[in-house]
Amino acid sequence: MASDTISITVEFTGGLELLFGNKKKHTVSLPGASKTKNPDITFLVNHLCENLMQDSRRELFVLDGGVRPGILVLINDADWELEGEEKYELQSGDHVLFVSTLHGG
């Protein structure tokens, strides 16, 4: 397993981009697997909250320690529920999309 950083693309739409400086696409470097396991989505979400979020209303993104219900997560265009949800281990080059379904109609 690689021990350097892995680079992924993170995208926010459906209104979520407002929490991240109104920018939709971000390239994110995560510390790679120092042990046996790559960083997972839980790690990514914490990382995003700590480093990328510019809005103080964290509860609009994360609730009870997980991604807020009503926000869809697509990993390489696939529903994260098909990929193991929070436990999915990120690979370099992955594309993770967070779409809010909660805004407007």
Partner: peptide, 14 residues
């Protein structure tokens, strides 16, 4: 939302 995403529809969300 998934339909809009996969068909790349142009919508507004604020």
């Amino acid at each position: 939302v998934l339909y809009a995403h996969h068909k790349s529809l142009d919508y507004f969300s604020t």
